[in-house]
């Protein structure tokens, strides 16, 4: 998919964006196979610049595409170890859709890297936010178990990063994480402690204790917008 923010900048930057999309995004690859000139036009690069790209059918390009996509999948599965197979079974889900999404390529669609590298360098949180927005897990009763499993995987990862001494952003997870069981009711909530014990809380008083202790609401967690004002160039 060609998003607006990937086709700005110099011709070289646009060519770079095109090639990076080509490596991960099936939609871009299909367009490259079917009509490269049209794709070049969409990226506002000269047809001559297409000669810098590998042949669409080159086995090396196919191997590189396969390896790179597999690399993202490994990263996602590492975090969503309990829930990924259930996500994969959803009829509307394909991993390719995530890799073709604006969210995957956008450095403003995820959380900071735990080592302080900054937004965009890790892709599991991008996957979480993308899935939350696109798979409607909390809105359908038959998907509540999957919703809970996916949140549990992600919450455990966030707490794990905090406990390993990740960058300051992750300190907010030091008091645990909770989320609503369904979108349409404040209770019950599922609460994961900093020790990664999981409780289902249906009592308003107990929820108040969790809130006053400083637990973070996973349903309210959003991507961090990076600062683009600090480019070394």
């Amino acid at each position: 998919m060609t998003s607006k923010n990937t086709i700005v900048g110099t011709a070289a930057a646009r060519l770079q964006s095109l090639y990076v999309h080509l490596l991960f995004c099936d939609k871009t690859y299909e367009r490259y196979v079917e009509n490269p000139e049209e794709l070049a036009k969409a990226y506002r690069i000269d047809n001559d610049a297409l000669s810098a790209l590998p042949e669409a059918a080159a086995p090396q390009l196919l191997a590189e595409r396969h390896g790179r996509r597999a690399g993202v999948l490994i990263e996602v599965k590492r975090v969503f170890g309990q829930s990924y197979s259930m996500i994969e079974a959803l009829p509307e889900f394909t991993f390719s859709n995530f890799l073709s999404s604006k969210a995957f390529f956008d450095d403003a669609s995820g959380l900071p890297h735990p080592y302080g590298v900054g937004p965009g360098y890790e892709n599991a949180s991008k996957f979480y936010f993308w899935a939350r927005e696109n798979l409607r897990l909390a809105g359908e009763s038959r998907r509540l178990h999957l919703h809970s499993m996916m949140n549990g995987d992600f919450a455990a990862n966030l707490i794990d990063q905090y406990s390993k001494g990740a960058e300051p952003y992750y300190r907010r997870f030091s008091r645990g994480i909770y989320w609503r069981e369904t979108n349409d009711a404040a209770l019950p909530v599922i609460f994961m402690t900093p020790e990664r014990h999981v409780f289902r809380i249906a009592d308003a008083g107990k929820l108040e204790q969790v809130l006053s202790a400083g637990a973070i609401d996973l349903d309210d967690l959003t991507p961090e917008i990076p600062s683009h004002g600090t480019n070394i160039l």
């Binding site: 060519l15 090639y19 450095d107 965009g120 360098y121 890790e122 892709n123 990076p226 683009h228």
Partner: peptide, 18 residues
């Protein structure tokens, strides 16, 4: 390397330049 195609570096994977 490229790493991606966003101003922050993005993606985080080693991507050879053209």
């Amino acid at each position: 390397t490229w790493l991606g195609s966003a101003p922050s570096g993005s993606l985080g994977y080693q991507i050879n330049p053209l």
